[in-house]
Amino acid sequence: MKRSFLVAVFALVVTLPVRAAKDTVAIELPAEHTRLAPGPNLAAAQICVVCHSVDYIYMQPPLTDDQWRSEVLKMKNMFGAPISDAEVEPIVIYLLSQNGERQVQETSPAP
């Protein structure tokens, strides 16, 4: 629990739906101000936030390296994330550092 953490902010703009015209409904979603926390291979892991917010990572139970690898490969092979073969393990190491069953020592600078 001593690892570093990020302070992130959900910008919660309480907005009502706008009736711009009859039958039109427009809403404004709260701005997303969550960021990946510092960790090994952070640069490689930035690909994650192209498609989803970081809470997808932190809400999971701590996962094993096999489980995180399987998630990364799912993103790469099934969801079309542009992740090269060489980037898979660095991203797994990052995810383990953030929410892994096997704790990984943070190293810096990232390789």
């Binding site: 992130a8 902010v9 910008a11 919660l12 703009v13 309480v14 701005a31 809470d55 932190y58």
Partner: peptide
């Protein structure tokens, strides 16, 4: 899990 902390909003003003 401090990332879960959220900005309080008061009277509709975001504290962003």
């Amino acid at each position: 899990r401090h990332f879960m902390r959220m900005a309080a909003t008061v009277g509709g003003f975001s504290l962003l």
